[in-house]
Design a protein around this nucleic acid. Structure first.
Lengths: 153, 153
DNA sequence: AGAATTCCTTGGTAAGAACCAATAATTTAC
DNA sequence: GTAAATTATTGGTTCTTACCAAGGAATTCT
């Protein structure tokens, strides 16, 4: 319990530094938390997009989520064989798939979102309920202010 | 200027998701901002540690900042030839270096910290002064609450 | 003095994400 | 009907970060 100043105050005064550190820690823990469900962060994003916006082609998903089409293939190859999404050829344009989330996919998404909340509570353990909500709102606002083009990562 | 909901609300409700996105964006912009000074994020951290805590051996720096000793070598090889730090053999133990920040190093650190503030203002453009301070405090608190062992990234 | 340990260094590995080029199948445009 | 564009896919590169293993130089232990 020694309060030795491990990190230089100069660094701790840099908001972006803290943002990055907490962000990376959160991202890694989120990845770990999702492993129990056999999915990754991109899989979660795709499931969420399909549930929130309905069926879409892989191209649409890529544009919306900022994922390269080629990377999306790996995601689909994870989700489809497990019956979490259904890939059917669009009859009006048989080049493209119509990707639909299944009921199993929705169920898993719900579980994963609960897990995500658990990860949040873990990473933000030092903050109380009100502070977490405040942080969320601030991040949301900041995120919305970032150039959409530069938002993809 | 269309306000089409690009990203699924389900994702935007995940604090860790926002944290990661804003964090990555910030980190990348910070890296870009520091390029003008010919240094990276680790270089900045080392300079800050040396100024805040005084001369140290590379081993100490590695432990304090959570950098692998082997990775620290590259940092030193960036800073030393430019005269930003001075590497002198500790006369009492000639295995270890005594790394000291130079006046040129302090000057560059100050400039880099100004640049860091600029990056913050850029990334958090959507937040006003008060909100930025609030966000900083929340992040600081959250960061302090993260397991020190898991804090290194 | 000899053995073990510490500090820095070199070099290589592994994981993760983003990115890009080329291709087959299909559709659209001319 | 032929050419051009689009969709999904394959296969690969690049970049960053973290991590590990071994070795030379110097110290400490016994």
């Amino acid at each position: 319990m020694s309060d030795v100043p491990q990190l230089p105050p100069s660094l701790l005064d840099i908001t972006v530094f803290l943002l990055s550190k907490v962000g990376v820690a959160g991202r890694r823990r989120m990845g770990d938390g999702l492993k129990a469900y056999g999915i990754g962060l991109w899989d979660l994003a795709v499931l969420a997009a399909l549930r929130d916006f309905g069926p879409a082609s892989q191209g649409d998903l890529g544009v919306r989520l900022g994922i390269d089409p080629s990377d999306l293939v790996a995601v689909m190859d994870t989700l489809a064989p497990r019956g979490l999404v259904e890939r059917t050829r669009d009859p009006r344009d048989r080049r493209r798939y119509s990707v639909t989330i299944t009921s199993a996919g929705v169920a898993l998404l719900d579980e994963a979102l609960v897990a995500a909340a658990g990860v949040r509570d873990d990473v933000l353990a030092a903050l109380d309920e009100r502070e977490r909500a405040l942080l969320h709102d601030l991040l949301r606002k900041a995120f919305a202010g970032i150039e959409p083009r530069a938002r993809a990562t």
